[in-house]
Design a protein around this nucleic acid. Structure first.
Lengths: 226, 226
DNA sequence: CGTCCATTTGATGCAGGTCAATACCTGTGG
DNA sequence: CCACAGGTATTGACCTGCATCAAATGGACG
């Protein structure tokens, strides 16, 4: 559910690198929207009409089983692109984790270009391959890693993408993390507490969402893939 | 699609030997090759020089954690294509589950065609998207489904791809199934036994690998995604 | 018919789930 | 500035589903 819209000039970021800037009218191709914390950007099985790039905030990509069990397939943070489907419908529901602003473009125009432009086509393939690699790593994590290993992998993944000046500020709740890692929120909390007790991680001041990694070696040891 | 040739190469486990053979005869795009049960087709992080199609048999695609825990990301059966990477190296190790014959083509020549032919380029994207969808479903299964749900989903997936005249003949062991489902082989065996007791599934004669689905309704109920 | 695996089945343990209480942010209003 | 409310996080006690350990059984093939 969208709050405000305004036309914005395309910055030189990934979406424009995809070649859309050169299309007919760049002025109306990009719009900015802001979604309130918790609101839905699009639903599973909805028609995939737009491609999005996070300008600020964080987005979660999730699926549900019929009885309400939820799984989060990915988090998208500033700079990330999401919503680009090869088929005609979305396979996940996308929701704002916190108030989030996105840029968007009609997918139709992207596909139109892709049919003529092999280079763009290649870039779409690269994007899909990147998502595939992430899903494959996630499969290994969910299929064979213990709970502390999962939490360590998560912290490292987020630290790479979100840390500023050595401080990782998590935008998502323990429940979100749990649904990303195939655990319960209690288990996530216990793992984090345990890591703090071990001194390999610390919280900043009073915050429960700001983390400092104190022993990257140990984290890497927990996380190494093979 | 392309179909031709049945040049049998000498049995060897060296990919480079295959490569030399192909290069000396550039006119032959496809070669046939047979891998013995259990042998490796290629290893994780090896250079991705060939794309394969299963002619007969079954292949498993796996990763290991440093301590030996294994996860199988996918099984490839007759007709399936595997080994097509966007990057330069393979991300999984591929092994023959049973004696398996594959057709193969140098990836290089495929890429060469793709650069000129947008249609092929689109097909590569479709293939990758298909793999992505499979991985995403697998993530949901591993992250949030119970053991009987996982086994039911597996049986249905294989039934769709392998069943002949109502009989599903599994080429892989209970351990392979377990490593695909993020379980132990005992849990897989118990789930199957339980399903047989419930009468929703039966084994053919004396075999432990030939399955008949007796109650598709119940299976679908266990498996439905949302 | 004996050897070698694969599979099943049983007994027991434990990692992580469930239930429940407490503590802790954060925002609002006095 | 404090008080209170409502969501979020931590922590504890207990439970259970699946893993682990351990036989026993079965099937394939010499």
């Amino acid at each position: 559910m969208l709050m405000l819209s305004s036309v914005s000039l395309p910055r030189t970021h990934s979406l424009s690198e995809l070649g859309m800037r050169s299309e007919t009218n760049p002025m109306i191709n990009f719009s900015k929207y802001t979604y309130l914390r918790g609101s839905e950007i699009y639903g599973e099985k909805e028609s995939a009409d737009y491609v999005y790039q996070v300008k600020s905030g964080t987005v979660r990509s999730c699926k549900w089983l019929p009885d309400g069990r939820r799984l989060i397939g990915a988090f998208h943070v500033v700079g990330d692109i999401f919503g680009m489907e090869n088929g005609s419908t979305h396979r996940f529901t996308l929701q704002a984790v916190v108030d989030t602003t996105v840029r968007l473009i009609r997918r139709q125009s992207l596909n139109a270009i892709a049919e003529r432009d092999c280079k763009l086509s290649k870039q779409l393939l690269d994007m899909t391959t990147c998502n595939l690699k992430h899903a494959e790593d996630h499969v290994l994590l969910l299929g064979r890693k213990s709970s502390p290993e999962r939490v360590a992998a998560f912290i490292l993944e987020m630290d790479e993408r979100l840390a500023v000046a050595g401080i990782l500020t998590l935008p998502m709740s323990r429940r979100d993390i749990a649904d990303y890692l195939g655990l319960t929120l209690q288990t996530v909390s216990r793992s984090l507490s345990h890591m703090r007790e071990l001194g390999i991680l610390g919280f900043v001041g009073t915050s429960q969402r700001q983390i400092v990694l104190l022993d990257r070696q140990l984290f890497a040891g927990l996380d190494r893939q093979d």
